[in-house]
Write a protein that binds this DNA or RNA. Structure first.
Lengths: 176, 176
DNA sequence: TGCTTATTGTTCATGTTTGAACATAATGGT
DNA sequence: ACCATTATGTTCAAACATGAACAATAAGCA
C-alpha cells in the first residue's frame, strides 16, 4: 500500500505542488469516469422513459417480474438492491396503473407473488425496447469484445468489493 | 432497428420460447453488471465514510472544493451532476460541521466561493484516504492496463450517450 | 443611459428512499 | 406440542433530491 508516485517534474518544485493528490492516481480518474457514466445513463434513461409514464425504478420492477413471473417482493428487493419497504411503496403505483397484479401465495401465507397484467406486458415490452435502443446507441462506442470485457471487469470488481465485507445488502445468489 | 435475432435452437420450438429476450443480448447483461457495481460501490463507500460523520455527497463536495478552492456553487453543482438547489441544501450541513466556509465574491455579488476550513482539510484528507483505500482494494481485481481500459471505455460511452442529446445536465467543460 | 436577457443562489412543495419498529406467518429444535 | 428464531410484508417518520418559481445581480445591446 505505497501510493507514493512522484508527481511528474521531480526537480526544484516550488512550495509543495499540493502533494500527492488522488487525481494523479489513474485508478481514481478511471473510477470517477464510471460514476459519471452511470449518472448520465440514469438521466438519459429516465428521460426516454417519461413518455411511457414510468420511471427507472418502475422499469426495474417490470423487467424483473417479466423475467421471473411469480417473484416475491423480498426477492425482487434483493435483485434491485433496494430495501423491502421501497418495493412496498413502489408496487401500489404500478398496481394503480394496472401494470402489476399481486397474488397471495397459498403455500406461504406471508408472501405475495407478482405478475404482469396484459397492460403490464405491453408497457414492459415498450420500456425494454427503449432500454435496448438507448443502450444500443451508447454501445456503438464499443466493440462487442470491449463490451464483454467491460462486463467481465464489472463482475470481477463487484465480487472483489463484496468479499471480506459483511454483505452490504446483496442477495444470496446474485449476479443476474 | 431490427432486433430480431433468432434465439439459438431454430427448429421445432414449443410454444414460443419467451421470444427474443433482452437477457440474451450480451450488451444487456454487461451493462447491468456495471449498474450493480455502481450500487455496491456507493453502499460500501457510504459505510466506510460513516465513522467520519459524512455521506457520499458530502465527500463529493469536499473533494471538489479541495481540488478547486474558490469554486462557486453553480460550478460545483455541474461537476457533481446534481441540481443547484441540492448544493444549496448540502452546504449548510457542511458549514455547521465547520468543514466549509462560504465567501462572497467581491467581483460578482451573486456568487459565493467555497473554501475548506482547517477542519475541512483534515476531514477531506481522511475521506480521500478512505476512498483510495477502498478503491485500491476493489481494483486489485484489475491490472492497471485493464483499469485504464475501463476508464477509457467509460469516457467514450459517456460521450456517445451525450452526443445528439440536448445535454441532460453536464457542464460546458466536463471530464475532469 | 435604459432595456432585455442570462446567471447565481435560495425557497418551497413534491416525490423518493431509507431504516426501524411492527404484525403475521413459517421453521427448527426440544 | 411449545418456544425461540427467522422470514415476509407493511407502516411511519425522517432524510434526500428535484424542479419550478423567485430575488438579486450581471451582461449585452439599443
Amino acid at each position: 500500500m505505497n501510493n507514493k508516485q512522484a508527481s511528474v517534474a521531480g526537480s526544484a518544485v516550488a512550495e509543495a505542488p499540493r502533494q500527492d493528490m488522488p487525481w494523479d492516481h489513474p485508478r481514481f480518474r478511471n473510477w470517477i469516469a464510471v460514476g459519471r457514466l452511470h449518472a448520465h445513463w440514469e438521466r438519459a434513461f429516465a428521460r426516454e422513459l417519461k413518455p411511457l409514464g414510468i420511471k427507472c425504478a418502475h422499469h426495474d420492477v417490470l423487467a424483473n417480474v417479466r423475467r421471473d413471473p411469480g417473484l416475491t417482493q423480498q426477492v425482487l428487493a434483493r435483485r434491485m438492491l433496494v430495501g423491502r419497504s421501497n418495493v412496498t411503496m413502489l408496487l401500489p403505483q404500478l398496481e394503480r396503473m394496472s401494470l402489476i397484479r399481486r397474488e397471495d401465495d397459498p403455500a406461504d401465507r406471508r408472501a405475495k407473488r407478482l405478475f404482469l397484467t396484459p397492460a403490464g406486458e405491453s408497457v414492459t415490452a415498450a420500456s425494454l425496447a427503449v432500454q435496448l435502443r438507448l443502450m444500443g446507441r451508447m454501445m456503438e462506442a464499443l466493440s462487442l469484445a470491449e463490451c464483454d470485457q467491460m462486463g467481465e471487469m464489472a463482475r470481477r470488481l463487484t465480487e472483489t468489493l463484496a468479499e471480506g465485507k459483511p454483505t452490504p445488502r446483496p442477495a444470496p445468489q446474485a449476479a443476474p
